[in-house]
Simulated scan of single mutants.
Amino acid sequence: MTLPYFEFVSVPGFHSQKLAGSTLLMPGPNGLGNIGQLALDLLISSLDLMRVGFISSTLVLPVCGNEDYGNETAPNTLHTSFEVYQSRPSNTTSITLIQLRSPVITKKGVLFSKSFAHWAQQMAFESVVLVTAADAGRRVDGQIRSDRLRFISTSDKYVHADRLQQLGFPRLEENETKRAWVASELASPIPPGAGVSRFIFDEFRELSVPLLTLIWFAIEGDNYQDALQLASAVRSLVNHGEDNSEQNTWKTPLSWKGLYGNAMFTKALFQ
């Protein structure tokens, strides 16, 4: 089967070979509350990642907008729906981050997942981390009584396995949760509300390519705190144990100025 168009287009002076060997972070497409996108927005802004290219795909709705991460006095920069960022050469940890600002087209989730999985395999990333949310209202009893973060991997030999254990991240209770959600044991272990993440997980598993999925149980609404906590978990994971006194310091993007829950919107507005 011919896969749909999925191509990396670099900015001038950047070569795609520089993607190899880095840790790839990507938000779960069409996930609940766009929490994966919000968490990675925080990482792009706070870690001062540089935009190195774009993904061209026929499976993502096209969109463009003004500057996301700068300030109001800086010249506007055009942003698109599917961009690629990377840590600066001076950083000791090499991170590549994909920001997806629009949904995958309806009924194209499987094709998108196949295209993304094969592209990620071709680019030879050291590891791939999918960052997403799931429906907190569909949790089983054991998940309600504990932290809202879970992880699941397509391989027990995942490159960040030791770091996960060191941080104490809880593994998704696969057998228990699958019985609560679906009758078929062949169904994806990814919880409801994660959007296209379940197809991506299944595709990486079928290709025997390691994929770590970080899942945050949440509900729709003001998801600032959810995004903050999920971003903190991702940053701790990819930090490789380095001591960082600014670990809890975050720079919110310019585009968050009008985010739901912002202090500029008071009760007086609705009276």
Rank of each mutant, 00 (worst) to 15 (best):
F54L: 07
A120G: 06
Y158H: 06
E185P: 04
G70S: 14
D48P: 04
M26C: 10
K267R: 10
H160C: 08
G195W: 02
W250L: 03
N66A: 13
L167Q: 07
F270W: 14
V110T: 12
D222T: 14
E7I: 01
N239T: 09
F14K: 02
A39V: 02
N223V: 04
T58P: 00
R150H: 00
F204L: 01
N262Y: 08
S255M: 05
A187W: 04
A133T: 04
I95H: 12
E242V: 06
T106W: 10
S232K: 15
I44L: 14
T80M: 08
T77S: 10
S115F: 02
G142S: 12
A117C: 01
T92V: 11
I44T: 13
T96K: 03
A161F: 01
N71C: 11
V182D: 12
G31P: 09
F116M: 08
E176C: 11
D226R: 13
G195T: 03
V159R: 15
Q271L: 15
F8E: 01
G221I: 03
L43N: 11
R139P: 07
P253G: 00
M264G: 07
S16G: 00
S113N: 02
A74I: 03
L111A: 07
A133E: 02
E173F: 09
N239H: 07
A268H: 09
S155Q: 01
L40K: 03
D226E: 13
V84H: 05
L172N: 00
E72F: 13
Q122N: 04
K157H: 02
A194W: 00
I219W: 10
L259N: 15
E174G: 09
V104H: 03
S45M: 05
P253M: 00
A218G: 12
A268Y: 06
G258Y: 06
S208V: 06
G70F: 04
L186K: 15
D135S: 08
S197G: 13
G221E: 11
L111H: 01
Q165F: 04
P210R: 01
Q271I: 12
A117V: 01
S113P: 04
P75E: 13
P62N: 02
N262L: 05
P27E: 02
A39K: 02
D243Q: 09
A233N: 11
E246A: 15
I35M: 04
D222F: 10
P89Q: 04
E220H: 11
I95N: 07
F201M: 06
Y260E: 11
A20E: 06
N66P: 11
D68R: 15
I35A: 04
L130Y: 05
